[in-house]
């Protein structure tokens, strides 16, 4: 039984991620303890809210270099995905820089409200193991105003006014713009895959 650490980035509704692992029959520890995080077999970086305040909280907890140096599989979720990037246009904040790219504000267009809130069909652009046993075009639940444009690290895309990166991966770092913990069976499968993959 491997250890699962969820980095407490201070955002709201982190509890729902703990509960998602409970539903998979696994316990996950919510923590800011660098020792616990370094020794975990799987690390999750969730996040809700603004990128700048989340980065400040990680810096206050002295976790920025800890996260950058992790070698085990790490899964960023929603804002946590954006924190893994070089930066975000939101308040021009510099992020962790473990996956290249800048999160850009979703363009607001009449037929495309911002924030993007709701279920979006998500298409894979890679056969990455994180997406194993998830039918192509599955719906996942999104809640965001910023997104990474499609890049070399994109594993799956979804559409707003423009296609954006729904899932990204680089080395041991993977991330989803959607909330797998709130994405029904498809989300549960993705979390299970994350526990099972070797990255």
């Amino acid at each position: 039984m491997s250890n699962i650490a969820i980095i407490d980035s201070g955002g709201a509704n982190i509890a729902s991620l703990v509960f998602a692992f409970e539903r998979l029959g696994r316990s996950a520890e919510l923590t800011t303890d660098a020792t616990v995080i370094r020794s975990a077999d799987r690390v999750l970086l969730p996040g809700v809210g603004a990128a700048k305040s989340a980065m400040e909280r990680l810096a206050d907890a002295k976790l920025t270099d800890v996260i950058r140096s992790l070698k085990q599989p790490v899964l960023g979720i929603c804002l946590g995905m954006q924190l893994l990037l070089d930066g975000s246009e939101e308040e021009d904040v510099e992020c962790l820089g473990v996956v290249p790219g800048i999160a850009a504000r979703l363009p607001s267009a009449p037929a495309y409200p911002v924030p993007n809130m709701g279920w979006c069909a998500t298409r894979r652009t890679s056969d990455h193991a994180l997406l194993g046993d998830i039918p192509d075009g599955s719906y996942f639940y999104y809640l965001h105003s910023y997104a990474l444009p499609v890049s070399d690290c994109t594993l799956a895309t979804a559409d707003h006014a423009e296609p954006f990166s729904a899932v990204i991966g680089r080395d041991n770092f993977v991330a989803t713009q959607f909330h797998p913990e709130r994405s029904s069976a498809a989300g549960a499968q993705l979390l299970q895959n994350f526990l099972d993959v070797s990255l």
């Binding site: 955002g11 809700v48 809210g49 924030p115 809640l143 965001h144 105003s145």
Partner: peptide, 8 residues
């Protein structure tokens, strides 16, 4: 909105 983000 400032504390939690507009999406909440």
């Amino acid at each position: 909105a400032k504390r939690f983000g507009s999406q909440c």
